[in-house]
Simulated assay, not measured.
Amino acid sequence: SRFMPLRWLTKTVVWIIRGTPLMLQLLILFFVPGIVLDSGSPWPSGESGRFLASAIAFIINYACYFSEIYRGGIQGVPRGQQEAGEVLGMTKSQIFLHVTLLQMVKRIVPPMSNEIITLVKDTSLARIISLQEIIWAGYAFIKSSHGYSGLVWPLFFTGVYYLAFNGVLTLLFGWVEKKLDFFQ
């Protein structure tokens, strides 16, 4: 942004979010509004409130990381490409949409796929605010009275689930990268 206060504010927010642990952000987002507001927690009660708080924390956290990836992708497009668009008589928006954006997408797919895979694994952190996610289910199975109490196999299978899910994402992003090879 050319508006300096907005630029300063967004840089500060991105710096704070990227510089603090996601687990701390989950705790702050879930508990602090209830402490600050005398009327209680703004989140719905039960599992839906925990899910909503977790979703918002993940969205804010990863939006900050993605914004840096996008910024780097845009700045990675050579200035000569934009100058060529100007020579052809394109407007600034046409240059951005038809020249910069198309080349940026090719550059950001690998770091974006990396962040999305990390996001999938980070969902296990939602357990800190008692959201029942995959690791929680594995622990619950271990503690249950199914005759398997004390075995670590359920946690092994949750790891296999994460590995399989991220394997599918890796194949998908590999396919996307291959489709974008025409930009080279």
Rank of each mutant, 00 (worst) to 15 (best):
G72Y: 11
G49N: 09
L37N: 11
M90W: 03
I16E: 01
L88R: 14
G150Y: 05
Q75W: 02
A137V: 05
Y161K: 03
G72W: 11
E86H: 08
G46I: 04
M4H: 04
F183V: 10
F157E: 11
G76W: 04
K178T: 11
F58A: 07
G72I: 09
N166S: 14
M90N: 03
R18F: 06
G80P: 01
G76L: 07
G138Q: 02
H146Y: 09
R79C: 05
I108R: 11
S1V: 11
W15I: 02
L27R: 05
V120S: 00
W153Q: 12
I116N: 04
G159C: 09
F141D: 08
S124D: 00
D38I: 07
I28W: 03
I16D: 00
G40A: 02
L6A: 12
I35D: 11
F31S: 06
A137F: 01
T10S: 12
T12N: 08
L37W: 12
M4R: 13
E86W: 09
F31K: 11
Y65V: 13
K121Q: 07
L102A: 00
F3R: 02
W15D: 13
L102M: 07
T20S: 12
F173R: 06
E47N: 10
F3Q: 00
L125C: 04
F96W: 09
K143L: 10
W15Q: 10
V168I: 08
Y139S: 02
K106S: 14
L6D: 00
I129H: 06
